[in-house]
Nucleic acid binder design. Structure first.
Length: 825
RNA sequence: GCGAGAGUGGCGGAAUCGGUAUACGCGCUAGAUUUAGGAUCUAGUGAGGAAACUCAUGCGGGUUCGAGUCCCGCCUCUCGCACCA
């Protein structure tokens, strides 16, 4: 047996043994309390894993193993999010069919993941692009459909001209495609939509129940974007045929209603065509057409210059009967509120800008002394604060707050308004015009109309095809496959056509956490009782990049399934932890950036594992910095961990046969280690947990301890603490100190306060808050005695000489501070 | 513009309650060992100073016996949102 630390020998050995003994298999039934620790499953990319991906997996694995040692029945599964744009784009780039490419990538990434020897129960592996799995994704879609939460609509959607598909609102970042960063354009398409907006209030309210980082909660809150206000109806007269129309608007400031001097409709608003006067028609049409063409990015960048056109029509302000002109402008968004606004230029920054540019009247209705004014006394900029109402008829003198109530009530009586709330959240565009996704299980029959595929006919399998490239026409590539498209109607048996759009990348991941508890169940997507046992997920670990998309969609699916009675919980993830990104200086850009292939700054774990072994890599991933913050990878830093493990190995190998007389200080240090490691794991401070191991080993390496030796029990406790971090290392030494059972069957050690605390403490002695010495005291030593002893310290005496002591501050066992009359000692 | 987080040695970073700032690691310096390189071990390592000491946690104030930590005002960086009526 070798006495050198050779990870290359011991790691494969334990990898094999754990496999043979099914050590990581989670039992179906157990007496123990359950614990569900989940990683955000990866999409199988061609470039494989780099050390940045590993960080989260190592972190969750330490946590899962810790929970196991604490006596929980731990579920820690892994799978593949293999449908969707990233997988498909990767396949297209390589010219390999997505199915084949995905399989290949899964194999490669699984090989890499197996190397880190996380406690994954691979018997529960799932793959969202396998028919056994997506059968149930389709099934859930049908449930959503039958609940009336899925509908088809012709809408101007976000279109990525590069990916050649529609995108959800959540997938557009600063007017660009989240994936490829191409500017997004608008396209009118018949789309499947999910009514996530119906859940807006619950998605918002229930954030309170969750143990999530505030940052993520804030991001979701802002995304859902709740505002309180009123809906107010303006009666508009068409300038074309004198027909009357209602134009409802949403406002958060009904108190400024008397200041509404004009109205603006979004260019795409359905009333535009109906009310525009013949004289204005050409100008309006030009403007509408132009704003359709302008990509989102430009529209956003033109924040400074407002544009717009008058429709020729007027609407009646319901509080004062005033005729206000109706304009159109792209600063009004069709998708928010009602797609139309009442413009109050005196009290809204954007309206002020627009009114100034087009010379529209500006009427102040909130009194303000503080407002900045031009020479003539008119406003220099919009006054946004609340205040007392002026120029508001019967409501003059009321505060904004009172006026909001009163004016809304007044309108409600006249049936021209009511209290209302508005959300920024929009319905989820669920159609993708791409090949690599779950086919939407709907059939169109000329006789029976839109018909869901009967559940017994699921899955609607994705056909094996040669050509899978996106068409760019707004139709999915599936449209060109007659064998797929043409089918018979489940209603009347006549000829019918299939829906050819596929689901977005997020579909499969919106419910996968429900699948792991019974991953290969054939007769259902999941079993209620099993799901209720395991879920919600106790700890969910993954990157911040999913703060909105995946987490919001998963919460939505969970709530729908809860409402349908399929599960007994309405939030999927109780605790969320976001690990920071691993960065490295890129030679190409010269900046410290997130690891990515395009930046040329990726570090592959394969070489490192070969050289140092996975235990070293695991511990370095944790040691590198606070888990929740971004960190910079330093190639040399890993040496320190390797040295630590070697040092520890040598120390323990040396002692394995010794029975020693152990001193109390060693016991004390051991118990402090138990306390610190436990506390630091609990707080996800893995970097400092690793340092506490180092400090303990440095202590054991002191000459006096080396000669005296330590008890086997001490070493054993140390190994159990270390086991979640360096599992092979600990397992091997555990065996070498004489155990035949796995170390992971042990119990997590408990801190014994009576052993961890000492009778004597080191108190600091200060004169005028400057350290002049230390004193060994007992915790309950009387202050008088401590004072006396402290004053006997030579330096203290020196600084106190000739001074009058004004005050003495004593914190028992910690500090004694003599304050003298002069400030400087 | 709004919101959140961060700023501590040459570097990554520690510092439960306001109580010895710089734990732990990297790097560096010197020595030991080694044919050499590497590895390992020992000692040292915030700055100034011969020392006594003094000064240092982005900047400027404040509270306190005592501030990296609390309060006020700035600066810089990162992330998120951004015409949301």
């Amino acid at each position: 047996m070798s006495h050198l630390y050779q990870p290359q020998k011991i790691e494969p050995k334990w990898h094999r043994i754990w496999q043979e003994t099914a050590a990581h298999k989670t039992p179906e039934r157990s007496e123990k309390p359950k614990y569900y620790c989940l990683d955000m499953f990866p999409y199988p990319s061609g470039s494989g894993l780099h050390v940045g991906h590993l960080r989260g997996y190592v972190l969750s694995d330490v946590w899962a193993r810790y929970k196991k040692l604490q006596g929980y029945n731990v579920l820690h599964p892994m799978g593949w999010d293999s449908f969707g744009l990233p997988a498909e784009n990767d396949a297209i780039k390589r010219g390999i069919h997505p199915r084949i490419n995905t399989e290949k990538n899964i194999q490669n990434m699984k090989r890499q993941l197996e190397k880190i020897d996380a406690m994954y129960d691979w018997s529960r592996e799932i793959n969202t692009s396998s028919p056994e799995y997506y059968k149930w994704t389709q099934w859930i879609f049908l449930k959503i459909y039958k609940k009336g939460l899925a509908y088809r609509k012709m809408v101007p959607i976000n279109w990525c001209p590069s990916c050649k598909t529609g995108l959800a609102n959540e997938e557009v970042v600063n007017g660009r495609c989240e994936r490829c960063e191409s500017p997004v354009t608008k396209k009118n398409l018949m789309q499947w939509m999910l009514r996530i907006t119906r859940y807006a209030d619950r998605l918002l309210q229930d954030l309170d129940k969750l143990d999530w980082p505030e940052k993520v909660k804030t991001m979701q809150t802002n995304w859902i974007g709740y505002s309180e206000g009123a809906e107010v109806v303006f009666k508009a007269l068409s300038a074309r045929n004198k027909e009357e129309f209602d134009i409802p608007v949403f406002t958060t400031r009904p108190d400024t209603l008397f200041g509404a001097t004009y109205m603006v409709l979004a260019p795409e608003h359905e009333l535009v065509e109906k009310i525009t006067s013949p004289y204005q028609e050409k100008e309006v049409q030009d403007y509408v057409r132009q704003s359709e063409r302008v990509p989102e990015v430009e529209r956003l960048s033109e924040v400074k210059q407002k544009t717009g056109v008058f429709t020729g029509a007027y609407a009646i302000n319901p509080v004062n009967g005033e005729k206000t002109p109706v304009w159109i402008s792209d600063y009004v968004l069709l998708a928010y509120g009602t797609g139309a606004i009442m413009a109050v230029p005196a009290h809204d920054r954007r309206d002020f800008e627009f009114a100034t540019k087009f010379d529209l009247p500006i009427r102040e209705v909130i009194y303000s002394q503080e407002a900045e004014r031009k020479k003539g006394g008119s406003l220099k900029e919009a006054y946004l604060e609340e205040g007392k109402l002026i120029n508001s008829g019967a409501f003059n003198g009321l505060s904004s707050q009172e006026a909001r109530e009163k004016i809304t009530q007044h309108l409600a009586r006249k049936k021209l308004g009511k209290k209302s709330v508005s959300y920024k959240l929009r319905d989820w565009v669920f159609s993708r015009q791409r090949y690599w996704g779950e086919p939407i299980p709907i059939i169109y029959c000329s006789r029976c109309g839109e018909i869901p595929v009967p559940e017994k006919n699921l899955p609607v399998e994705l056909p094996q095809v040669e050509k899978y490239q996106p068409t760019g026409t707004g139709k999915s590539p599936l449209e060109n496959i007659p064998e797929f498209v043409n089918t018979t109607c489940p209603g009347c048996g006549g000829p019918a056509k299939r829906e050819t759009d596929t689901m977005p990348q997020w579909a499969g991941s919106s419910w996968y956490f429900l699948r792991y508890p019974d991953a290969h169940l054939e007769e259902a997507s999941f079993e209620k009782e099993t799901a209720n046992y395991w879920l919600p997920v106790d700890t969910y670990v993954g990157g911040i990049e999913h703060a909105i998309l995946h987490l919001l969609y998963s919460r939505f699916f969970t709530k729908v399934l809860y409402d349908l009675g399929y599960i007994g919980f309405d939030e999927p993830f109780q605790q969320l932890f976001n690990q920071g990104m691993v960065c490295k200086r890129s030679k190409r850009t010269g900046k410290v950036e997130k690891m990515s292939k395009s930046k040329g700054n990726v570090v592959s774990p394969d070489v490192l594992i070969e050289k140092y072994g996975i235990d070293t890599v695991r511990m370095y991933e944790l040691f590198i910095g606070p888990a929740e913050l971004d960190c910079e990878w330093q190639d040399q830093g890993i040496e320190g961990i390797f040295r630590f493990l070697k040092k520890t190995w040598n120390l323990i190998s040396k002692w394995e046969r010794e029975s020693a007389q152990e001193d109390r200080e060693t016991q004390r240090r051991l118990h402090l280690l138990i306390r610190d490691v436990t506390e630091r794991i609990e707080a996800f401070k893995f970097n400092t947990a690793v340092s506490s191991f180092m400090e303990f080993i440095n202590f054991l390496n002191r000459p006096e301890i080396l000669t005296r030796g330590v008890k086997n029990k001490t070493i054993e406790t140390f190994l159990v603490l270390l086991a979640p971090f360096a599992p092979h290392f600990s397992e091997e030494l555990w065996e070498r100190v004489g155990h035949s059972e796995s170390i992971f069957k042990e119990e997590w050690p408990l801190y014994d306060r009576s052993l961890g605390e000492t009778k004597f403490l080191t108190a600091v002695v200060q004169v005028n808050s400057r350290v002049r010495g230390t004193l060994t005291v007992t915790k309950d030593a009387p202050e008088e005695k401590v004072r006396e002893e402290a004053r006997r310290i030579e330096k203290v005496r020196k600084y106190l000489e000739g001074k009058e002591i004004k005050k003495v501050v004593y914190v028992p066992g910690r500090i004694i501070n003599f304050v003298t009359t002069t400030t400087k000692g």
